[in-house]
């Protein structure tokens, strides 16, 4: 008896980021409006495997998830000489735009979670017209720190164990045990210092307070969805951010935490499917308008 083969296909694309060649791993499934999914800090594209395999959504969207450089199967670039990894707002923005350009994606939807949610806000601020719609999961212009990131990368504490243990509390108690463990497994496998390096963007370089007010949701619709159990990017952080952006859509998701797509895929689908359908309807309506 042959085994069930999942529909997503993984490949590598060669991308120049700030002039430096990178070999980026991505998985994709489906056809239609491009939907690029961004993983959280210190993890990788495996977080999106349930969405990638979603048969109904794949009929309407070309769902794509890539591993950021230093994450998952995207190695550091050949130019790396061992210096500490450190993600900046500019570098993160360049990476996403370069990836989309390398795949020749025309006005993709971008959906990011956590740091991916924060950078989605920056895309909305600086490059709204390049995107069809933007979705920020667990996203806010800023959130208060709740631990010292130096614990994430030191030789006398196991990095994988401490990274996973820190974020374990961000998962809702209702999430299935197997999904909880799988979500944490990705954190246990992250390279040394990578989670910490991602958080440089999140904690230090990517403070968007005072900038989100300029987002034009008329140029690109913006959807913000946050889990009620996320005490890192709290529902109040997202409410404050949404309140500052005219036209932003806000949803607080029950029984979900900081990793909605991987910690409880079924519960997440209840919230994200209507958003994606709304984006699709808007896309059809826009195209009909073009033909009138």
């Amino acid at each position: 008896m042959t085994g069930m083969i999942e529909p997503m296909i993984g490949r590598y694309v060669h991308v120049e980021i700030d002039g430096d060649p990178h070999r980026i791993y991505f998985e994709e499934n489906g056809a239609g409006v491009p939907l690029v999914c961004l993983h959280t800090a210190g993890s990788d594209g495996r977080q999106w495997r349930h969405l990638l395999a979603d048969e109904a959504l794949a009929k309407k969207f070309r769902i794509i998830a890539f591993d950021m450089p230093w994450h998952g199967k995207s190695n550091p670039p050949a130019s790396w000489t061992g210096e500490e990894y450190c993600l900046t707002t500019a570098r993160y923005t360049q990476t996403i735009r370069a990836f989309c350009q390398a795949l020749a994606l025309e006005k993709p939807v971008v959906m990011g979670c956590s740091i991916g949610g924060r950078i989605v806000l920056n895309l909305a601020i600086e490059h709204a017209r390049e995107f069809h719609a933007l979705i920020g999961l667990e996203a806010a212009d800023f959130q208060a720190p709740w631990y010292d990131t130096s614990w994430l990368h030191r030789p006398d504490v196991h990095g994988g164990e401490v990274c996973a243990a820190l974020v374990s509390g961000l998962i809702a108690p209702q999430s299935p045990d197997a999904s909880r463990r799988e979500t944490l497994w990705c954190y246990m496998q992250s390279g040394p210092g990578v989670f910490k390096g991602d958080l440089y963007f999140y904690r230090v370089d990517g403070d968007l307070r005072g900038r989100v007010e300029g987002i034009d949701t008329g140029a690109c619709p913006l959807y913000l969805l946050t889990g009620e159990y996320d005490f890192s990017c709290t529902p109040d952080d997202t409410r404050r951010t949404a309140a500052a952006i005219k036209g932003a859509s806000l949803t607080i998701m029950e029984q979900l935490g900081h990793f909605p797509m991987s910690e409880n895929p079924e519960q997440f689908r209840r919230y994200i499917a209507p958003v994606l359908n709304q984006i699709l309807e808007q896309s059809i309506s826009d195209k009909q308008g073009e033909h009138l």
């Binding site: 709740w146 631990y147 820190l166 374990s168 509390g169 961000l170 809702a172 108690p173 009620e228 159990y229 005490f231 709290t234 529902p235």
Partner: peptide
């Protein structure tokens, strides 16, 4: 309840 479910929360 949310916010009461973890030592660091």
């Amino acid at each position: 309840r949310p916010g009461w479910h973890d030592l660091l929360a």
